[in-house]
């Protein structure tokens, strides 16, 4: 038997990516069928873009049977917000944008409160508020096990208490592709369809599926300032220069996207997908190296996850 695919002008996926795609679609459908109020966390980055693409595939020809939630800290790159609104309009998505009103009132910024407290208030607490308000019992996220050591132990269905806490020592066993979606009222599950993807897989899939991305992922001359060994984007007036700091213009791109004061750029000449992938294949540092919040303290990510972070 020959399987012939009449694609939209793209060659068929290689079996490696096809297997990852099949697994993700299976997870999407299973969660949508088993939970009453699922939601998808959408962070605008490359992993979220892949996640959204897979969700659209999973429910085709229907629409997404759940809304998207974006936690807007107010410190995202403007290009991210513009891209988000464009994507929402294109696919007719139901997007809920949430900002922690307490943090807004108290004027919590990465500079005034330090990255750890800022992240807790504007991301972790904000996320919990949004999930509680929607009474969501399942939330899709784009986390991957290859990102960080504590994520390597994460289940595909990650069980959370009513306080959204993760107990890494008491996780439900997960055998075969059989996921246990049974929970008590108030409890919830974070579901990770991209668990088994690596960073290279994400990029190859974006290329193969021609998925649109925020232009920040591609190298361009951008104004940056060097701070604590990171290259910080310096085109926002709220970034106050410290003594001795100088704004320079350099060819840079971002490997991950978050709040601009906490996201380091990398010097790069890669202006398109092929060049980004080529650069990645010889990369000697991990993508999370550009994330200030992972480095606050030892076991940083595990601590944040226990407290309810994604």
């Amino acid at each position: 038997m020959n399987v012939i695919e009449h694609g939209r002008g793209k060659p068929p996926l290689d079996p490696h990516l096809k297997a990852l795609e099949n697994e993700a679609i299976h997870i999407f459908r299973e969660v949508a069928a088993e939970f009453e109020r699922p939601v998808m966390l959408y962070s605008i980055g490359k992993d979220s873009s892949v996640l959204l693409h897979l969700a659209l595939k999973a429910f085709h020809p229907g629409k997404l049977p759940f809304p998207l939630v974006h936690i807007d800290t107010g410190w995202k790159f403007p290009e991210m917000i513009a891209f988000r609104d464009q994507v929402v309009a294109k696919h007719g998505l139901d997007l809920i944008s949430h900002t922690n009103p307490d943090g807004l009132r108290d004027n919590v910024t990465p500079f005034s409160h330090g990255s750890a407290r800022y992240t807790d208030i504007m991301k972790t607490q904000a996320l919990k508020q949004a999930l509680d308000m929607g009474r969501y019992d399942a939330a899709f996220g784009g986390a991957r096990r290859d990102e960080e050591a504590s994520r390597a132990k994460e289940r595909i269905y990650s069980f959370r208490t009513p306080d959204h806490a993760w107990d890494p020592r008491n996780q439900r066993p997960e055998l075969w592709s059989l996921y246990n979606g049974m929970i008590h009222p108030g409890e919830s599950v974070r579901a990770f369809p991209l668990s088994n993807w690596t960073e290279v897989d994400i990029w190859r899939y974006i290329q193969a599926e021609q998925i649109e991305l925020v232009p920040l992922y591609f190298a361009k001359r951008r104004k940056i300032v060097e701070r604590d060994g990171m290259l910080i984007w310096a085109e926002d007036k709220r970034l106050e220069l410290l003594p001795g700091e100088q704004v320079r213009e350099e060819m840079v791109r971002f490997r991950t996207l978050g709040c601009f004061p906490l996201t380091g750029a990398v010097r790069s000449e890669a202006t398109d997908l092929d060049e980004v992938i080529a650069e990645l294949e010889i990369a000697t540092v991990s993508e999370r190296q550009g994330r200030a919040i992972d480095r606050d303290q030892s076991g940083s990510m595990e601590k944040k996850k226990r407290e309810g972070y994604f």
Binding site: K153, P168, R169
Partner: peptide
């Protein structure tokens, strides 16, 4: 590198299943 949880590092033992990813030119592995 492998024992990702704090309790594991403290006790020097592996508690839970962890998944690792690597690839050669020929194949990728979980």
């Amino acid at each position: 590198l492998l024992d990702g949880l704090q309790a594991e590092r403290e006790q020097g033992i592996t508690i839970d299943v962890a998944y690792r990813y690597f690839a050669t030119d020929r194949r990728s592995f979980i």
